[in-house]
Simulated assay, not measured.
Amino acid sequence: MRLSEAKSVIQKVKPHKIGIRFPKRAAWTPTIPASGPKIPDEILRLAIVKSPSASKAAPAKTAAAIPEGVPRMRDGRPKYEDIPVTNIRNVIAKRLTESKQTIPHQYTSIKVSVDNAMALRVALKESGVNVSMNDIVLKAVSIALKQVPELNAVWSDGDVQRLEDVDMCIAVATDAGLFAPKLSKVDQLGLSGVNAHVKDIAGRAREGKLTPSELSGGGFSVSNLGMFGITEFTAVINPPQAGILAVGGIEKELTLDGLVNTMTLTLSSDGRSVDVNDAFVFCEKLKAILENPRIMLML
């Protein structure tokens, strides 16, 4: 038989007619070993698109997850109350958002020994002059701003405007919100003058009696949370100012010389108008003044 005839015979053969059965190939499913962190079932269920029947049963599960004693609405969700936003809170929110979105914050922290500053405060009190640690910090900041004028500036339409007068803002918490009234020409005041100025403007801020000129201006701010037990924090720059100093509370630290009272200061500066080196120099100057506070009595 010729090869061509054999091929034609094979092609005419029908496997199902002569009883030939070929085994069916089983579907092959690759097995991939599990890797990575295990995702909780609660999170996986959030990604599953539920059917309408399943979504009706969801409130019951949500209600079961709510602790006992929490008021709930008819569908099982916890009750809530819409708090209207006041105009002051709305302005604060807009300024905070503007600050964090448009200002490149750079942070510099330094720890300062305040034993000498505390001793100076006691000596002044014995002579009839009452000042606080906040007053001493404010006066020291004003001197440091004179020595490093790059921090006493504002950012205006792509330009840096350095200010001649040292006008600083202080953070004051009131029932209506957080205000930052301006202290004018702090570098020209003594410690007792700073104390009187702070008491006056903080009192009027809580009473809502600040003038528009006291709520604007200044190239630098100071926020002191040490009296609330906060030891260290970072503050948000008040635009268009060049920086803000976050003042923490006094802590006792064990050193080779024994227990030392220290305070952590954190500078937030605008990276557009303040070089990193200027921020370092400012913190060094401020540390030197606070650790040798009697220099403030001579300026």
Rank of each mutant, 00 (worst) to 15 (best):
G128S: 02
L215C: 11
I230Q: 08
V131W: 02
I88A: 13
N224L: 11
T108D: 01
E5D: 14
P212N: 12
V198K: 00
Q241P: 10
A58P: 00
E253T: 06
V160F: 11
K100A: 00
S113I: 09
L210E: 01
D135T: 06
D157T: 11
R204T: 03
V160C: 08
V281Q: 00
M263G: 00
I289T: 08
K79T: 15
L178N: 10
A119G: 02
T262R: 04
A65V: 04
M298T: 08
Q11R: 14
Y107W: 15
R95C: 11
P37D: 09
A279T: 10
I83M: 06
S268Q: 01
L163Q: 12
A57D: 07
A153H: 02
L254T: 13
I143W: 09
A6N: 02
S216L: 04
Q188R: 11
I143E: 00
M118F: 10
I43W: 05
L178P: 11
A123Y: 01
K100V: 14
L151M: 13
V114E: 15
L3D: 05
T234E: 11
M298K: 09
V222E: 01
F233A: 07
R77T: 15
T231I: 14
L256A: 03
D187P: 03
T108S: 12
R74D: 15
L124P: 06
S213K: 11
V114P: 12
T62F: 04
R25P: 07
V85I: 14
M133L: 10
A58D: 01
D159V: 15
G249M: 13
V154R: 03
D75K: 03
T108F: 10
K139E: 03
R206T: 07
W155A: 11
K111H: 10
R121A: 06
T108V: 13
V91H: 04
S142E: 01
P15I: 14
G76K: 12
A117Q: 07
V281A: 03
F282L: 14
Q241A: 01
Q147Y: 00
T97R: 07
V172D: 08
E251Q: 15
L178Q: 03
F280R: 08
I39V: 13
P67L: 05
K24T: 14
F220C: 07
S216D: 09
S184Y: 03
F220N: 14
T264N: 02
K94M: 05
T211F: 02
K146I: 04
A26R: 07
I295A: 12
T102M: 03
A205C: 13
I10F: 15
L297P: 03
E150Q: 09
G19Y: 07
L297K: 10
L259T: 02
L297E: 06
K14F: 02
G193Q: 12
I201Q: 15
E232N: 06
E42F: 05
E291A: 06
P149Q: 02
L225M: 15
G203V: 02
V129T: 05
V141N: 04
K79Q: 11
G248E: 08
S35Q: 10
D167G: 01
A27E: 14
